[in-house]
């Protein structure tokens, strides 16, 4: 159990979110089941009003969730000073069996909430509100994921044992580690880089073909290949150490917080790519989505590629 003011703050906000999310959930279920835009009954008018409340609550939660996610990472970094052995957030994530799942769940929820907002916008721009049922249906699913996140976060913090030694990121993200993370180090560097750059080329190709489903799919796979290549290959060059691969350390001051930029680019790039593929939208706004996705994914590839390039120019060798 660890109860620093930061953890307590996260818990308070989570309880608040959960309270509001339950209200939004109940309304969503009602709207999902009873929505009928053509009806002129009092009930339908009431539902139309309540849809505003539900949407406002969801927007509120998302608006706080994004900065709170950064705060969460900050908090993990801070806790890592208290835990013996941990150097950065990675050690805290690994300190309990829930950490990794919680982190993945948090990221998934961010994508879902962002997708929900885009759907909501498309819905509100049309007089017939064609996606109302769909968006509140989506929230019903998102609600359970969200509650799972809140519960898991509580469990994780209460499971952290201050006196137990944890692993540091240097040993977690290395080829000698026993966890499933270490599997990615078994992949050949050539294969890895081929997949990474190949995936980006595919995104460009599907942009030219204007195939929205393939575009979304290639973006989805780019999240995975992007992160794995970052850990297995580019990380070494960011740290300029052949043994250091941690995906958290470069979020810290010593690396000029570059990690936040890296993940921001990847998130915006892939999210708008997936959104452009899956969101109902006019051709012009879909085109904007394609372009944003291409731009940000491109910047991600460029930024990461520059690290080994500069390293090579400076030292004349590859790691």
């Amino acid at each position: 159990m660890i109860l620093t003011p930061e953890v307590l703050t996260l818990c308070i906000l989570n309880i608040l979110f959960a309270f509001f999310a339950i209200i939004a959930f109940v309304l969503s279920v009602k709207i999902f089941l009873q929505w009928d835009l053509n009806a002129t009954t009092q009930k339908q008018y009431l539902l139309e009003k309540q849809s505003f409340l539900a949407a406002t609550i969801i927007k509120y939660i998302f608006a706080i969730k994004v900065p709170l996610f950064l705060f969460f990472i900050f908090t993990l970094d801070k806790i890592s000073h208290v835990l013996t052995g941990a150097m950065c957030a990675a050690g805290v994530v690994d300190a309990t069996q829930y950490g990794t799942y919680l982190l993945i769940l948090k990221v998934i929820n961010l994508y879902i909430f962002a997708y929900w907002l885009m759907l909501h916008r498309a819905d509100m721009q049309d007089e017939n509100q064609p996606y109302t049922k769909r968006k509140f249906g989506l929230f019903i699913a998102a609600f359970f994921l969200f509650i799972a996140e809140v519960v898991l976060e509580g469990i994780m913090f209460s499971a952290i044992d201050v006196d137990k030694m944890v692993s540091c990121c240097g040993s977690l993200y290395s080829s000698s580690a026993t966890s499933y993370v270490s599997n990615i180090f078994r992949i050949d560097t050539e294969v890895l880089l081929f997949v990474f750059y190949g995936n980006f080329v595919l995104i460009g190709l599907f942009y030219l073909l204007k195939n929205k489903y393939l575009f979304a799919l290639s973006n989805l796979s780019f999240i995975v290949s992007g992160v794995i290549t970052l850990i297995a290959f580019f990380g070494m060059y960011i740290y300029q150490l052949p043994t250091h691969h941690c995906p958290f350390c470069f979020l810290q001051n010593d690396y000029y917080y570059v990690g936040y930029l890296i993940y921001f680019l990847l998130f915006i790039g892939t999210f708008s790519g997936i959104g452009a593929g899956l969101l109902p939208a006019s051709n012009t706004s879909r085109n904007i989505g394609y372009k944003i996705s291409l731009l940000f994914n491109g910047l991600y590839v460029l930024l990461l590629s520059l690290y080994p390039l500069f390293f090579y120019i400076k030292n004349g060798v590859w790691l």
Partner: peptide, 18 residues
Amino acid sequence: LFLVFFLSVPIYVAATIL
């Protein structure tokens, strides 16, 4: 500063939603 922010502003805003 962030800590105090998260403990104050979002909670006030939440109270005004309904």
